[in-house]
């Protein structure tokens, strides 16, 4: 995220003009931001110290009560945090690895290269509502996925995918005779896993596109020199491509974490947090507390905590990239 360009930038003789021009350039965007982004967010911070049913005008001040409830073992919050972490840990590394792999493959001199790039990118431009509806159908008990699995002789989950609250690690352990693992160890539910897979399916292409830019940026002669030195393709990938792409990889990871920690749309359209709350994520909980439970103040407190979690991830990533860039 940190750019070397800043360090290289020469002194700026337009400095005096920029004092004013800078703000003139910012002005239109800032008007939108102040009205529709900063303002509402400040309001959320303010609300997190209040209680508001949403449908009453009264918003009594409750100090830190909302935060206290949140950190004193609120079951739904813990569940949402757990689901979100599973979601992020499952989706982000997978979509990053697959995106990188596809980018490297799609960058080779192969016939139909453009076709493949197009195919991979296509899901990311389709409407998420459309995709959710299609996947609801694919995952249904009589949908395509179950049918193919049954025909190939594989077991299918019962209840079917999006209705199954069992943890996948729990199921795996159950298969070898270990029962009743703790909730945290049970793993994401089959339903959450289904949404995770769909998410990877949709975002993989975007990640590929981002990597493609980075891969194309690696000068040809680096590889040529390496292959003259007798480096294998495998070692070229791990010793040249991956290290050179490290900042891009970290960027993709950060984007991925920000995205997954805010995952909402798919949950909203496909499962509404069910079955048995195993697909409630932090962002969905914010929504549910605010709109389903008449607790907008508490919802705001969760949003604030979510904000700081994501901010932390961003800062950690920035630090790591900063170090890479300086090295």
């Amino acid at each position: 995220m940190v750019s070397l360009a800043r360090a290289r930038r020469p002194r700026n003789p337009l400095a005096a003009e920029d004092n004013v021009a800078g703000w003139v350039f910012l002005l239109p965007a800032m008007i939108i931001f102040v009205l529709f982004i900063f303002g509402p967010i400040l309001y959320i911070f303010w609300l997190s110290f209040h209680q508001w049913s949403l449908i009453e005008p009264a918003k009594p001040f409750v100090g830190l009560d909302n935060y206290r409830t949140l950190f004193s073992g609120d079951a739904d919050f813990n569940l949402a945090l757990r689901n979100t972490i599973w979601f992020a840990l499952g989706v982000v590394p997978t979509q990053t690895a697959l995106g990188l792999l596809l980018a490297v493959l799609a960058n080779r001199k192969l016939r139909g290269k453009t076709f493949f790039r197009t195919a991979f990118y296509f899901p990311s431009i389709s409407s998420s509502v459309v995709i959710s509806i299609i996947f609801l159908w694919l995952y249904s008990a009589r949908g395509l996925i179950n049918y193919v699995l049954i025909q190939l002789g594989f077991p299918t989950p019962r209840p079917p995918w999006l209705s199954n609250p069992r943890g996948i690690i729990d199921m795996g352990l159950g298969a070898v005779g270990i029962e009743n693992v703790s909730v945290w160890l049970a793993g994401p539910s089959v339903a959450l896993l289904s949404i995770m897979m769909m998410n990877i399916w949709t975002t993989m292409g975007t990640m590929m596109i981002i990597f493609l830019a980075g891969v194309q940026d690696i000068p040809n002669d680096v590889y040529e020199a390496a292959s003259l030195d007798g480096a294998s393709r495998r070692s070229q990938f791990f010793d040249i491509t991956v290290p050179l792409l490290r900042p891009v990889i970290l960027f993709v990871l950060t984007l991925g974490f920000i995205g997954t920690f805010q995952v909402f749309d798919q949950i909203f359209v496909m499962t509404s947090g069910g079955p048995a709350k195993t697909t409630i994520t932090l962002a969905y909980l914010v929504f549910q507390e605010g709109f389903g439970n008449f607790s907008m103040g508490y919802a705001s407190a969760i949003a604030v905590v979510l904000f700081f979690i994501i901010l932390m991830i961003y800062l950690v990533q920035r630090r790591i990239v900063g170090e890479t860039a300086v090295r």
């Binding site: 209840p159 609250p165 069992r166 069910g274 079955p275 048995a276 389903g292």
Partner: peptide
Amino acid sequence: PGGQKFNDDANAVLQNLFAGQ
């Protein structure tokens, strides 16, 4: 009052029951 949250919680309990949890 509080019915929406109870509805959600109770549905979760019943879903867990049916899933054998």
